[in-house]
Design a protein around this nucleic acid. Structure first.
Length: 448
RNA sequence: GUGGUAGUAGCUCAGUUGGUUAGAGCGUUGGAUUGUGGCUCCGAAGGUCGGGGGUUCGAGUCCCCUCUAUCACCCCA
């Protein structure tokens, strides 16, 4: 019989332990940060009725969505992000939940786009959102959570780029350009990449007159520290109510971040950030890595005025952002920041003497009872081979005991990195044994 | 979806103007070594040369298609 070639779909991946361990660690970090700020977990189905998912992001998102007809003839879609399912969820349950409602949601999403470095067809997002309030406090909190997330994850060179859609719409209104907003925003977004000249050309083809083009270019040319950018925006948007509101909010956010002790290097106002997703109406965020900007944004989001408007008459404004777990992981890997741990356990117990299995399990359960993790090797192979296995998996210590030690109620605790070992009693003195084990584990993990 | 580049062992790669049984290092595995691992030495396994078709006496090598990866456009985590 012909064998089926084992392979995964384009853009879909397997995760080996060495990849999965840091992945789980990242999810745990995100969870802790979210909870620290009072966000609570939810989950929603992978599949939704297609009508719930389509037309909520943009045409592009609809095009990239996986969808099919199920066996009951229903048009079904796989979620494209976690925000649209949240909108449906909120419309359905907000009465029991009450507002403001702060939730986090860590789950995979699917997009049928061309895979590239840091871009996959199946990837995990770690979303957090606050809905039911328009207060600036939530905007500030969102920025602070992003800042804290990045540090906790172990990235200390990054920049949160902040903008406000209101500033952009204010400008569009002033120039009487509401009609060509997408073209203008897209051109603006490209400013850094293609330069002023190219942007001007593009704007001209989009039907803008010279005056309008110059105004847009003036906006995108704004650079500098937050105070500087804000005062330049002030001048540019005199007389625009929308624009002034947007500026005030940016000012409040930056002021609060400063007060919260966030250093300037970690955030900046960037008027070129527009964000493609159509539902954003206020503040928007993008976070890029200082050491790998090319991989794109690893954490972005923004404020939306009426998230659930398609599902309920209740007005539900909100703000949130999403940490791109898989993209961040791909970046960390490229930067060599992923430690190579292939073991989940701390303590290795070689099966030295096959006749003493019960002793090994007794030993292991003492270790586990103390909250440490222990693995008993499944076969009575040669000790050297067992230790090699332990070494390759990154175990910190081994508990070695043959019949002689076991008869005496003793065990040898060996630090596998430093090779230091000591013989202690474990049967009669479990507490002392555990103390020695802990001190042996905390020895410096360095090879001299 | 459109275009550029690439694909040889699990990994990193070599392979002459097309020429006979396709190689190396690392890794895996067995041994040297019946109670102590990272070194050393010896042995072994592992390849439809991404897949399909074509040109040729002969294709890993040239041509076409396709799949996958990667880059750019687009969009985005």
């Amino acid at each position: 019989m012909a064998l089926i070639e084992p392979r995964t779909l384009k853009g879909f991946r397997d995760f080996l332990p060495a990849a999965m361990i840091p992945r789980e660690r990242l999810m745990e970090v995100a969870r802790q940060v979210y909870r620290r700020y009072g966000f609570v977990p939810i989950d929603t189905p992978t599949l939704e009725l297609l009508e719930v998912l389509t037309g909520k992001g943009s045409e592009e998102t609809d095009r990239q969505m996986y969808h099919f007809v199920d066996n009951g003839g229903r048009a079904v879609g796989m979620r494209f992000d976690l925000t649209v399912p949240l909108a449906r969820f909120a419309a359905q349950h907000i009465q029991e939940l009450g507002t403001p409602f702060k939730r986090y949601h860590i789950a995979p999403v699917w997009r049928g786009e061309t895979p590239q470095a840091g871009r996959f067809r199946e990837f995990v997002q770690c979303d957090f959102d606050t809905i039911g309030t328009t207060g600036v406090v939530s905007d500030i909190e969102t920025a602070l959570v992003i800042h804290e997330l990045m540090h906790e994850v172990g990235v200390h060179r990054f920049q949160i780029r902040i903008n406000n859609r209101q500033v952009l719409t204010g400008m569009l209104e002033q120039l009487d350009l509401q009609g060509s907003s997408t073209a203008v925003l897209r051109a603006l977004d490209k400013f850094d990449k293609v330069g002023a000249e190219q942007v001007a050309k593009e704007l001209a083809t989009a039907g803008l007159n010279t005056e309008q083009v110059n105004q847009v270019l003036a906006l995108s040319a704004i650079r500098g520290g937050t105070d500087e950018v804000l005062s330049q925006l002030d001048k540019l948007l005199v007389g625009s109510e929308q624009g002034q509101q947007g500026i005030d909010r940016l000012r409040a956010i930056c002021g609060a971040m400063k007060a919260a002790g966030v250093k300037d290097d970690f955030y900046r106002i960037d008027v070129s950030i527009a964000r493609g997703l159509d539902y954003y109406t206020g503040v928007v965020f993008e976070t890029t890595l200082g050491d790998l900007p090319s991989i794109g944004s690893v954490c972005s989001g923004g404020r939306y005025d009426n998230l659930a408007g398609l599902y309920t008459k209740q007005h539900l404004p909100g703000i949130g952002a999403s940490l791109g777990l898989d993209r961040l992981l791909a970046a960390l890997e490229q930067l060599g920041l992923i430690p190579k741990t292939a073991s989940a356990a701390d303590v290795f117990i070689p099966l030295f003497d096959a006749d003493r299995i019960n002793d090994y399990f007794a030993l292991a359960s003492i270790v586990r009872g103390a909250g440490l993790s222990a693995e008993v090797y499944p076969e009575a192979k040669k000790l050297g081979q067992q230790l090699k296995y332990a070494d390759q998996r990154g175990f910190k210590v081994a508990l070695i005991a043959g019949s002689q030690e076991l008869d005496a109620g003793e065990v040898q605790i060996k630090n596998l990195v430093s090779k230091v070992s000591s013989q202690v009693e474990w049967k009669t003195q479990p507490e002392e044994f555990l103390n020695s084990l802990r001190s042996m584990m905390s020895l410096e993990d360095r090879i001299s």
